[in-house]
């Protein structure tokens, strides 16, 4: 029974992992706690649902949802991030939160506040391995999440663009001095982070077969927790944190009860922050003043 829960935890964790990587890109590189990411996660799921409901083929619906999320993220960059560059780090938080409220309410107007059933795309083919039940959709999304993260990690370490991103993460000023074109790199980062969040939203919709305008909040905040537990700015930290948070959530529901989820998940986060603020796999902050 516990091993079944571990499998479920891994599945949930793979979704947190993608959201955490999306947050890590925004915060590790740009030092911007982008609260529109839960909104983009929700947009991914809801727009895919809207597309499928309109009778589009699922692949078109998914592509449309991803494109929409990318476009919205460009607007976030233009309106929330760009005007505040160099100011107080908490200020862009307000407008990115504004985007979250805006997206939620636009979806509310379009689809209503009820939870909608997302159609099952893969026929209910479950894999049975020694008493364990593994849904094909779950397995596919776990594989896709891991593949995406491996690709991203390779991209950041081996390509020129990846090297630029890491330079910006190290120091924005140095990056500008070295001639990195911030005005083209930053929007691309925003699109990348939006695509990850929207992919997570679509995977969530496919796996749990439900969407709602507020699906982003719970998952989004757990994604933040996963990012910090793993270590801010570290891709593999986000992976570890996401899987860990997913596991802790599923195990505490099955062993204790659903009301304690916030205590265990955020208690773990608090504990990590007090004992090891840089996260499990993060580097200690190098320019600490006091």
């Amino acid at each position: 029974m516990v091993s079944q829960q571990i499998v479920n935890g891994l599945m949930l964790g793979s979704i947190y992992m993608l959201v955490a990587v999306a947050f890590t890109l925004a915060i590790g590189v740009l030092n911007f706690l982008n609260f529109s990411i839960p909104g983009l996660f929700m947009l991914g799921g809801m727009a895919a649902y809207g597309g499928v409901k309109m009778g589009l083929h699922w692949s078109l619906a998914f592509a449309g949802a991803l494109a929409l999320a990318g476009l919205v993220s460009l607007a976030v960059e233009r309106l929330a991030y760009r005007p505040m560059r160099g100011g107080d780090p908490e200020v862009p938080l307000v407008s990115s939160l504004g985007f979250l409220v805006l997206l939620e309410n636009l979806m509310l107007i379009r689809f209503g506040s009820d939870q909608q059933a997302f159609p099952a795309l893969l026929a209910d083919t479950n894999l049975r391995v020694g008493g364990l039940v593994i849904g094909m959709a779950q397995l596919a999304s776990l594989a896709l999440s891991i593949a995406l993260v491996i690709w991203l990690s390779w991209f950041l370490s081996a390509t020129n663009t990846g090297r630029r991103v890491r330079t910006v993460a190290e120091s924005g000023e140095t990056a500008v001095l070295l001639g990195i074109d911030m005005s083209s790199l930053v929007p691309r980062l925003f699109i990348g982070s939006a695509l990850l969040a929207a992919t997570a939203g679509i995977l969530f919709a496919v796996n749990y077969q439900q969407v709602s305008p507020f699906m982003g909040e719970g998952v989004g905040f757990k994604g933040v927790a996963a990012m910090i537990v793993g270590g801010m700015g570290s891709i593999w930290g986000a992976v570890l944190g996401g899987l860990l948070i997913g596991m802790v959530e599923v195990l505490s529901i099955s062993l204790i009860g659903s009301n304690v989820v916030n205590i265990t998940v955020y208690g773990l986060l608090l504990l990590i922050l007090i004992l090891r603020p840089q996260g499990l796999m993060g580097r200690p902050p190098s320019r600490e003043k006091l």
Binding site: I27, N31, L33, P89, E90, F221, V224, A225, I228, M232, N259, V260, V261, N262, I263, V265, Y266, G267, L269, L270, L273, I274, P277, P285, E288, K289, L290
Partner: peptide
């Protein structure tokens, strides 16, 4: 903790208390 870490610690704290 400082900056964003502090923000996240208070965030986690709020969640733990209400839970």
């Amino acid at each position: 903790t400082h900056g964003i870490y502090l923000a996240m610690a208070t965030f986690a704290l709020g969640q733990v208390i209400s839970a």
